[in-house]
Computed example of a mutant assay.
Amino acid sequence: MRFAAIADIHGNCLALEAVLADIAAQGIGHDHIVNLGDCFSGPLEAGRTGDLLLLLDAVTVRGNHDRYLIEQERAAMHASDAAAYDQLSPRHLQWLKALPVTRIWRDTVFLCHANPKVDDVYWLEKVSPEGKVHLNDRASIEALAEGIEQELILCGHSHLPRAVRLADGRLIVNPGSVGCPAYDDDLPVYHRVEAGTPLASYAILEKQEGNWTVTFRLVPYRHLDMARLAASRNRPDWASGLECGWL
């Protein structure tokens, strides 16, 4: 089995197009792509991204920002969610409403956005009281994996490509972010997540001789076009992250 995992597109249509082209160049078909959510939120091109994702029809789970778009009133939305909402059509929102929170793919792979319990709390990372993001402790990671029988577990949310092997041999993989390499957040305390590169990130998973291999791929695209678009929409934080991977 060989397939691609994408996550955290955040309305970056140019990055998604580049990643899909790279996936195809690796000989992986559209029916072997899984999407871990947070598809639209951001000041970029949510509508175009929605059109492409509906056409792609990849196996997808719902992220926390996807949930905000269908649960919150427009007036209550964060600026990034509101910017995306204003570009989405009813068919995009209906697609989001139909997405599951978790999913088991081909009996072998468990899919979720952040962690199996909730969609907005990191699994493989932890934020210190000082706002530093680092690898979560092993006990906490293992505890959240209890009850999952699949040998390969995929999550997103932190935008950081990472793989963690559990004590029983199961593997948890975060493919990184397709379209948003840097952001800040106030919860649980103020912190920044910065990939340090503007490249679009995804992962290829392959089972060989009973073991899963992981290849993280970082794909160039016209990221400066997206940085300029964010700047024109009064989002200097997004512009900086898209330009260089740092805030």
Rank of each mutant, 00 (worst) to 15 (best):
I104C: 01
A143P: 06
G147M: 03
L88D: 05
A84W: 02
Y221S: 02
R235S: 13
S89T: 14
C39F: 13
G169I: 07
Q150M: 01
T213V: 10
A18K: 00
W95H: 04
N12C: 06
D186G: 05
G11V: 05
D119G: 10
G27V: 01
L52R: 15
S140R: 14
T49H: 10
I9L: 03
Y183N: 11
V173I: 06
P161R: 09
T215D: 12
L187C: 05
H10Y: 13
I28P: 00
D185A: 14
L152D: 03
R228H: 13
G241H: 09
V178F: 03
Q72W: 12
K132I: 14
S232N: 14
I104R: 11
A195P: 02
K207P: 07
T60M: 05
T49D: 01
D66P: 03
G147Q: 02
P175H: 05
D57G: 09
L218K: 15
G210P: 03
P116E: 04
V109C: 09
V164I: 13
H157S: 01
A24T: 12
E125C: 03
Y183S: 04
P43M: 06
M1L: 11
V61F: 08
E243A: 15
T60E: 05
R217I: 08
D22R: 12
E146R: 15
K126I: 11
E71I: 02
T213H: 15
L124M: 12
V178L: 00
K126C: 11
P198I: 10
A239E: 00
C39E: 07
I172L: 15
L199R: 11
C155M: 10
A145G: 06
D119W: 06
V133C: 09
R67W: 14
F110T: 06
L218A: 14
W105P: 09
R48K: 12
F216P: 00
Q26V: 04
T213E: 14
P43T: 01
L93R: 11
T102Q: 12
A114P: 04
R192F: 13
A82E: 07
A5F: 01
H159K: 06
A167V: 09
H92P: 07
T197R: 10
N12K: 01
L99N: 08
R162A: 03
C112R: 00
I33V: 15
C244N: 10
A76V: 10
V193T: 14
R192W: 12
R67T: 14
F110W: 11
G147S: 05
L205W: 04
D119E: 15
F40K: 11
R138L: 13
L124N: 09
N12G: 01
A75Q: 12
A139H: 12
H157P: 02
L199H: 06
G156R: 06
D81W: 08
V193G: 04
H134T: 14
A84F: 11
L99I: 07
V61K: 03
E243M: 09
P220H: 03
T108L: 08
G11P: 10
D38Q: 02
R138D: 14
L152T: 07
L93N: 09
V118E: 13
A98S: 13
V173M: 03
W123T: 02
Q87K: 02
E151N: 13
G241P: 01
L20K: 01
G196L: 02
L55A: 15
D119V: 10
L53S: 08
